[in-house]
Design a protein around this nucleic acid. Sequence first.
DNA 1: CTGAAAGCGCTTACAG
DNA 2: CTGAAAGCGCTTACAG
Lengths: 341, 341
Amino acid sequence: MTIKDIAQRSGYAVGTVSRVLNGHPDVSDAARAKILSVVADTGFQPNDNARHLKQRGGSGIAVIVKGARNLLFAGILEEMQSLIKSAGRAAAVYYLDEDDDEVEQAVRVSREFKPLGILFLGGNQKNFEERFKSVKCPCVLVTTRADTMDFKNLSSVSTDDAEGAAQAIRSLIAAGHRHIGVIGGHLCTDCGPGAANTSQTRLFGCRRGFMEAEVAFDETVQFEAARFSMPGGYEAANALLDRCPDLTALFAMSDVMAIGAMRAIHDRGLRVPEDISLMGYDGIEQAGYCVPRLSTIRQRAPQLARRGVEILLRQASGGGGAVHEIIPFQLVPGESVREVK
Amino acid sequence: MTIKDIAQRSGYAVGTVSRVLNGHPDVSDAARAKILSVVADTGFQPNDNARHLKQRGGSGIAVIVKGARNLLFAGILEEMQSLIKSAGRAAAVYYLDEDDDEVEQAVRVSREFKPLGILFLGGNQKNFEERFKSVKCPCVLVTTRADTMDFKNLSSVSTDDAEGAAQAIRSLIAAGHRHIGVIGGHLCTDCGPGAANTSQTRLFGCRRGFMEAEVAFDETVQFEAARFSMPGGYEAANALLDRCPDLTALFAMSDVMAIGAMRAIHDRGLRVPEDISLMGYDGIEQAGYCVPRLSTIRQRAPQLARRGVEILLRQASGGGGAVHEIIPFQLVPGESVREVK
DNA sequence: CTGAAAGCGCTTACAG
DNA sequence: CTGAAAGCGCTTACAG
């Protein structure tokens, strides 16, 4: 079943069928009605390969998600999909592994899907710097800043990660903690100072929090790098607690790591928060279902999604240069932090 | 940059370039070397739209995943991807919403991606019955049985859901529980007896467990339907506990629901397992990180993945009719069930 | 408003 | 082993 069959059965030419299918205005009502009825009868669906092969500017929005298991991204994506839909556009979602190159994917997608614009959920500055110049459609990087890169078609919507981490540390210090361990992602050692990754930015914020309060923070022993996963958090917490038995609080740079850390603390015969206080980052749904409920720095998924889509849509309809927005985070108190002394 | 450019720069015709790109054997070493070097120099990537438009039988494996947030599927998928890769094949993953039609997607995918075969992670019998006849390549449905449908190109690898649920109930009864609540998915009311969905099958198993042990189970009050999510489990647990204050144990048909239930129990001022014992289903990673660790019926993701891929690959190389395998589940004792009296 | 035709970038018989 | 050519199923100027 192809467009040719529809043409035959409806008595119109393939060109006219194509126009109807794509909602072009210059078609008579009679033709439209007839063709649409044949399409409905046959259940015809156009072949997207053929469509994209020839089509110049598409009308869909591509969303490139770095990490299918990233729960923060899953929450943002859900919002985005409904927003894109209610804007009358189609969304095509591409999931990548965390260490795949999202910009390479974007190049491929712009060539083959020809989207109106691309939303990135997560991204690595280095990839953008190396390859982004060949993608020409408007793009928005969500959850990661892009203001230092200065591409005119790359906007960003993100949270102030440094300040979020600083707040996490401040809140633990305000609760009386003086010996705090930090669990983060692996740092990107070969990046220049501008091309910091998320973990580095948050670690930078931690330092600021400690320094302002004049609380000691010896990174070589109080910081542990791990993967952004439950096992990662589990092992990192154990390493920190082995190394520094006097810690009374842990800050994990993601809720998922914090959940792993929580289990590690219990497995050592300690309790959260009675013995060790714990603070996460992200504010995923799951944080609210932990026992005890996890205190965390929430990135506001709905706002990140909404502004991301709005900015992209505006740029796509010719709306000026790149913009870089910061969405305020939210410190969500749970049950995992205890006031000491 | 197209195949034409590569032809020009290499001095060969486009047909030859195409043959090299697709690994056909009937090409001289000289031609292959020259063309490959030009491809490497230019970083050329063929356009998949054009490729799939013309290609007859593709060589990739499509995986259709029902529910991007389903953690059991995420685990199975990861395994599958590495198995497919090490079999020298490319995997194309398509994520669907839980209530999207996976068979409609399969029809589209076979038309446009032309895979060697399709793996389904999750699926609804009704969809298969209505539309599967138009997909012609070998397929394997994973985690759901397909033996009652009798398509010659549809195999299945699954867990005995009825028996798994029965075991969950038996183990709670063996621990001394006599008043047990069950949290399941919504039942498919308009399905025939053959076209049972997962929740119905597991509920059937629950009944068997109760009946064998001659323990009362009044479904109208001891069963509560919910979405397969943490909030779903949370609300269902509250409803059950409101209705039947004498319950001493809860069985949730998924770990995610069980985690929601765990939080609900705590919010009522009760403890797991001291006041209420809790049993989940699936055996996702997360179950092992709960506090207390969740007792659960584990579906063996690695085996489901491995057999699914093996069967598909065998069928794809002409290996006989459909097969239907059952992978044994595993009762994983955690810390969420207590022996009573 | 509609049709006939070119062409998107590939693959694949068909010759040689 | 290689080339020239047809064609996959659409979209899109170009005429009319």
